[in-house]
């Protein structure tokens, strides 16, 4: 996992609320046993027509979305299934941060484990941001600030542990495994 500290990138918006993980990546693409290369299936049913051609009406197929790394999405992003294929697909496609008014719990947990930053903003800020989609925004995880194209700075909250892992590009397993003694003691007490 690459460390995520600060970056500046173009934004794109999919304003629908309750974008579930079946939309992010439909279940028929979950038969793979690897996690690489899933970006091609991101938003597949919205992105491609029934004959497999790019749907010109879908925002990710439009010129303004090219190179976008920040996704502004509607409320309750990532609801539904626990599939980690959703953040894998988003990251493989090139997204590094999702901005919404709220996230589903399992998706948020899965996202941060893959270097994808969920940023929660208020409805007012969300509304402001939706007026400047396509512009470049800056994300600063060191100071937990999102800076829009007009220079407005919005502080955001993130779990301190997830933040540390993201900043260091570190997965959580080493931290868990550093508790061998505690785990053994727990098992001894329980048996």
């Amino acid at each position: 996992m690459q460390p995520l500290r600060q970056f500046k990138a173009k934004s794109v918006s999919i304003p629908a609320a309750n974008i579930d993980t079946d939309q992010i990546i439909p279940a028929r693409f979950l038969k793979v046993t690897i996690k690489e290369g899933l970006g091609q299936h991101l938003f597949s049913d919205w992105r491609y027509t029934s004959d497999g051609q790019p749907n010109p009406n879908f925002v990710l197929n439009q010129a303004l979305a090219e190179g976008a790394q920040i996704l502004l999405a509607g409320d309750n992003f990532g609801c539904g299934s626990s599939r980690e294929h959703a953040p894998w697909a988003l990251v493989d496609y090139g997204f590094r941060a999702i901005v919404s008014t709220s996230f589903a719990d399992i998706f948020r947990n899965n996202a941060t484990k893959n270097g994808l930053l969920p940023i929660v903003v208020s409805a007012e800020v969300h509304q402001d941001l939706s007026q400047q989609v396509g512009a470049e925004w800056s994300v600063d995880l060191e100071s937990c600030v999102l800076r829009d194209a007009n220079g407005n700075e919005t502080p955001f909250a993130i779990d301190p542990f997830s933040r540390t892992c993201l900043l260091r590009g570190q997965d959580e397993l080493d931290f868990i495994l550093s508790h061998q003694t505690e785990i053994k003691n727990f098992e001894r007490k329980a048996s």
Partner: peptide, 9 residues
Amino acid sequence: GIGTSEVGH
């Protein structure tokens, strides 16, 4: 429910 990273954990 948990994600696959957590399945590994």
